[in-house]
């Protein structure tokens, strides 16, 4: 297993890219590509990663980069892999798609590649909303979260549905490898990327990637928030290898989901009742993953001082 010390210092995703400060996607891409190495070809569907990674005539990628559309990551990986195989070249064919590009518009294409068990690595960078277009709800948006399409209104506050269980959907294709990752657990992160790299067939790495403007948080806390997500059960670290599920990191005593929510402006409006609802969802998930009941009392949450938002600011950054 590669340790931090052994990890390559070669920047295959160079500095000078134009992601927001503290971007969880940039962090995850940089480290994934460090492990994957230079014999890699990437496909990136429409997303922030296209824009901050390549803007003609400049690019941050030092490995071949391809982009055409939003909903076709799976298919493009299939096409690239077939062509490389025909030419007798051994190349890591890797897709970096967002949650919108995977949970929603790209689900069919991903499913096709998974079902065919094409020899590709699909990486989902899950920041829980359509961030490139300016923070709109996706199938990966958690319950209660503010987005610009699940605004905090007088009648309806935030997203009313729970995050789609993508892991089970992907795993149901009976692929050789599915794993969830968090940048906050570096060794686990590196190990899973390395493992996925060396398995043949369709591999899926599901990375939890905070978005500073989308989650309305301090850029310095990108890594911290992923750790809190894991400690609270909002994100679980596990892998499914040939149908066998294994928890790869088990937190100690379950922390209240409130600790996680309070770090982020997108949840700041949530009512006690909504927090309780979300907490129950998390407890169910915790129980499912860790096979233990863990439902700490839902604490009272202090009401927000004011309706938090810098929505215009975010809109400005991300375009209409």
């Amino acid at each position: 297993m590669i340790t931090l010390k052994e990890l390559s210092d070669v920047n295959l995703f160079t500095a000078g890219h134009t992601a927001c400060p503290g971007c969880g996607v940039a962090m995850s891409i940089r480290n994934a590509i460090r492990v994957l190495g230079k014999d890699t070809v990437v496909y990136v569907p429409a997303s922030c990663a296209v824009v901050f990674g390549t803007t003609f005539p400049y690019g941050a990628w030092k490995v071949p980069f391809f982009h055409t559309a939003f909903e076709n990551t799976g298919a493009c990986l299939t096409g690239m892999q077939a062509a490389f195989e025909k030419k007798g070249k051994k190349v890591n064919v890797v897709g970096f798609a967002g949650d919108g590009g995977t949970y929603d518009i790209g689900l069919q294409s991903m499913s096709g590649a998974a079902e065919r068990n094409d020899d590709v690595l699909y990486i989902c960078l899950d920041n829980e909303a359509y961030m490139n277009t300016g923070i709109q709800r996706s199938g990966g948006t958690p319950f209660g979260a503010w987005t610009t399409t699940t605004p905090v209104g007088k009648n309806i506050q935030g997203n009313r549905r729970f995050k789609k269980n993508l892991g089970d959907i992907v795993a149901a294709h009976e692929i050789p490898y599915y794993a969830t990752l968090s940048i906050g657990q570096p060794l686990d992160f590196i190990r899973k990327v390395e493992k996925a790299k060396n398995i043949k067939g369709f591999r899926f790495l599901h990375m939890f990637t905070p978005c500073i403007p989308g989650w309305k948080m301090d850029p310095a806390r990108t890594v911290e928030v992923t750790k809190r997500a894991v400690e609270s059960g909002m994100w679980t670290l596990y892998e499914i290898e040939n149908g066998e599920k294994k928890i790869t990191y088990k937190p100690g005593k379950m922390k209240s989901v409130r600790d996680y929510l309070l770090m982020q402006g997108r949840f700041r409006h949530m009512s006690d009742e909504d927090i309780k609802t979300l907490q129950m969802w998390v407890c169910k998930k915790w129980n499912l993953h860790y096979k233990e009941k863990g439902a700490p009392e839902v604490c009272e949450i202090e009401p927000p001082e004011e309706h938090h938002a810098v929505t215009e600011e975010h809109r400005e950054m991300h375009g209409p």
Partner: peptide
């Protein structure tokens, strides 16, 4: 200046900080 893969290295972003 540089263009193509890796050329963002010439984009100094210190002004953002």
């Amino acid at each position: 200046g540089l263009i193509g893969p890796g050329s963002f290295i010439e984009n100094k972003v210190s002004g953002w900080a």
